[in-house]
């Protein structure tokens, strides 16, 4: 698959709404006498269907930015509209609901529940969304099929390879059909082959199903798999540019389209 050129990308982006509209986000921690500015006046827009990377060395504030974008934390000042919702004003329980419906997390260390099958892990966000019974099971199964694990839905986490575990985690992120998938160093615990596979999976989810994906990484090679790199250092966004030479991961074709699943689940 060839990298789409800049005109292509802009055309696609312009046709979609803003998923992330963050303006002047500041996060300040009080460490005893000293004020630590983890994030300073960060302004960022991400449109639906984008595939972007937030890059920076450790301590740069990229985790803080991700936590705020993921509604796990709230900015000290600034405004953040997620899918048009001003999340900086929301209460704890409302943030939980937003995370549940609009965001799918993928973590470096997978964070699957032990002694629990793949499908039950994927069902987890659906439980909190109040989806019950057969519908919950079917949606979880579709999500697992979308990441190519349709034949391993009853395997427990410890019976799966690292790459497969991360696929389960991605299926879990997909299950509630969020507006945005936030992946924090998703290949950090994987060998290069599995890492490549995971990036390929993100690419096809984005290309074929139009899912908005943001990857947080310190690894330029991983960032080069996306189409836009946002650089951050010392809590300040220092750069924001499209990826001109996107690395296209070699991956097996998806067994099923997630868009199709969406239509099915909605109907």
């Amino acid at each position: 698959m060839a990298a789409p050129d800049r005109q292509d990308r802009l055309a696609r982006v312009d046709g979609h709404t803003l998923v992330i509209d963050a303006r002047d986000l500041t996060k300040t921690y009080q460490m005893g006498e000293i004020e630590v500015h983890a994030l300073r006046d960060a302004t960022l827009q991400v449109h639906a269907g984008e595939f972007a990377a937030i890059m920076g060395p450790s301590g740069s504030g990229k985790s803080t930015l991700m936590n705020i974008l993921g509604c796990l934390d709230q900015a000290t000042t600034g405004t953040y509209l997620l899918d048009g919702v001003d999340v900086n004003r929301l209460k704890d329980n409302q943030l939980s609901a937003i995370r549940n419906r609009k965001i799918g997390f993928v973590f470096q260390s997978f964070n699957l529940l032990r002694r629990t099958s793949a499908i039950e892990n994927v069902e987890l966000p659906l439980i909190y969304a109040g989806v019950v019974g057969r519908q919950r099971y079917e949606r979880a199964r579709h999500a697992l099929e979308a990441v190519g694990l349709g034949d391993r839905i009853h395997h427990h986490a410890n019976e799966l390879s690292g790459g497969q575990q991360q696929r389960v985690a991605i299926a879990r992120a997909l299950a509630s059909q969020p507006s945005l998938i936030l992946a924090d160093e998703p290949t950090g615990n994987l060998d290069s082959v599995s890492g490549e596979e995971i990036m390929g999976l993100f690419q096809s989810l984005n290309e074929q199903s139009g899912i908005t994906v943001i990857i947080v990484t310190h690894d330029l090679r991983i960032a080069m798999h996306t189409r836009r790199i946002i650089r951050i250092a010392d809590g300040v966004i220092t750069g924001d540019e499209p990826v001109l030479e996107q690395i296209v991961a070699s991956h097996e074709p998806l067994t099923k389209s997630v868009v199709g699943d969406k239509a099915q689940a909605a109907g």
């Binding site: 796990l72 939980s96 609901a97 964070n111």
Partner: peptide, 16 residues
Amino acid sequence: TREIGLRKAVGATSRA
């Protein structure tokens, strides 16, 4: 603790 963190991340309320 990590399980609780994960559950909250995927949308569990404090009440849940």
